[in-house]
Write a protein that binds this DNA or RNA. Structure first.
Length: 418
RNA sequence: GUGGUCGUAGCUCAGCUGGUAGAGCAUCCGGUUGUGGUCCGGAAUGUCGCGGGUUCGAGCCCCGUCGAUCACCCCA
């Protein structure tokens, strides 16, 4: 029988790399928790219309990358391509905005886009995101950015940068887009590019060809169109980032893939990932909630790509901290020791120590090898002699130094050492 | 979705102008009857991605297909 294979474009994480994935994800989530964000757990599929209206029909994400199917009741369902629309739906549906504002939530999980796969670009990918809803203060913009930045620094990443911009409010963008279209109409572009420009003129700023870049150099810049209010908001965001000692650069030509962004927008880019360099991005979406039928509250959030951040960590050789390793591995010698070891391991686990032990009958050498492979920080050698005297040999697997411990005080001793 | 490259042992790869497969690492056993990560010896492991074609003969050539990867597109 033929072996089954995973569907095209999915990434899987299994030992030993899964530990690394887990470390990255938990670090990102931890940063959100430390800023007061609380978990919101949502479905991975939603009414297709939610994304069409929320994300925007003109975006590539909606027009050609969604996993859409009909369920058994004939409803059109779509696997979520991004997180914000679903969060908005849930906030509106359950009136989460009725209480104190802002509502601050984080989420994590799988997202789906039917693109041609590449390293760091998968059809099922993993994001950690946060949303802060119902507060317009520029300080919250900086806070959201800081959650991501703190997480990256905690991971030990260095080779990344933050770009920020302001997209202005809806009327501003309308005025600007009109001028931009007028400008583009004067350019000599090939058919495909013209079509792209018609769909969304901002996209031309992202073109990688030098000719197009040169042509676009003379284009009007959105930031020159900002209202007094938007400009001052953006100014305050920058001051706040300065206060936080977060480095950034202003990218006046940033293009975001989703239609709902207004005002502050940002992107984290890693320099060691080839063309899939975006490791996270987000921004304000002040009209979105009203557009989806809720009250007219502002919002800001981000999505971080865990798959790509993991790749970035590997590219930079970022290591996993010790507290992710197994703490103790028990090596029993002989039948009666084995029975004692099973119970001892259970006691230690109950007491909160991560513990594993050598099963089977591989002999001491084999069991020590297993202890080594487990990555455990300590090995506890438990033989007939030791049991008779109520003791055991505790070996530090890094230094190779071992000492005798009494089983009765083992837990206290471990606590001191770990 | 468009174009290029690649697909051989669990992993990384070698395999000359077509003559039915090899290395290193990992695994297991032993050197060491109570000590891993070093060293030495030994063993096991493959429908050469899959399907078809050309040929006396295909890992190698041709076609298709699936997958990965790179660039574009797009983005996390």
């Amino acid at each position: 029988m033929n072996k089954f294979a995973a569907p095209k474009g999915v990434s899987e994480y299994f030992p030993d790399r899964s530990k690394y994935f887990e470390f990255v994800r938990e670090t990102l989530i931890d940063s959100a928790r430390r800023s007061g964000y609380q978990l919101i757990e949502l479905p991975v599929f939603e009414d297709t219309e939610l994304f069409a209206r929320g994300v925007g029909e003109s975006t590539d994400v909606v027009s050609k990358e969604m996993y859409t199917f009909e369920d058994r009741g004939g409803r059109s369902i779509t696997l979520r391509p991004e997180g914000t629309a679903g969060v908005m739906r849930s906030v509106i549906e359950h009136n989460l905005d009725r209480g104190q504002l802002p509502v601050k939530v984080w989420y994590s999980g799988q997202f789906f886009r039917a693109e041609r796969p590449q390293l760091g670009r998968y059809r099922q990918f993993y994001q950690v995101g946060i949303e802060a809803i119902g507060l317009q203060d520029p300080e919250i913009d900086a806070e959201v950015i800081s959650v991501a930045d703190r997480a990256f620094k905690k991971l030990g990443l260095k080779n990344y940068s933050l770009e920020i911009t302001s997209l202005g409010d809806a009327p501003t963008r309308e005025r600007y887009t009109k001028d931009l279209r007028t400008y583009i109409a004067t350019l000599d572009l090939d058919e495909a590019t013209t079509q792209r420009a018609n769909l969304n003129p901002l996209r031309l700023f992202d073109d990688k060809r030098d000719e197009v870049r040169a042509l676009m150099a003379g284009a009007p810049v959105l930031m020159d169109y900002l209202t007094q209010e938007s400009a001052s908001h953006f100014q305050k965001v920058q001051e706040c980032l300065n206060d936080f000692s977060i480095d950034y650069s202003i990218n006046k030509r940033m293009v975001r893939g989703l239609d709902y962004y207004t005002g502050t927008a940002f992107e984290f880019v890693h320099n060691g990932l080839g063309s899939q360099s975006g490791i996270g991005g987000g921004g304000r979406y002040d009209g979105l909630m009203a557009q989806l039928g809720g009250s007219d509250l502002s919002g800001i959030g981000f999505g971080l790509g865990v798959d790509r951040i993991l790749l970035a960590c590997e590219a930079e050789g970022v290591g996993i901290p010790q507290d992710f390793a197994l703490q103790l591995f028990i090596v029993p010698i002989g039948e009666s020791a084995k029975r004692r070891a099973v119970v001892l391991a259970q006691e230690l686990r109950v007491a909160g120590f991560s513990t594993d032990l050598a099963y089977g009958d591989r002999g001491l050498k084999g069991a020590m090898k297993a202890a080594d492979k487990s990555g455990s920080r300590f090995a506890l050698v438990l033989g007939e002699n030791e049991i008779a005297s109520g003791s055991a040999e505790l070996k530090n697997m890094q230094t190779g130094v071992s000492s005798s411990v009494t089983l009765r005080t083992l837990q206290e001793d471990l606590r001191k050492l770990l």
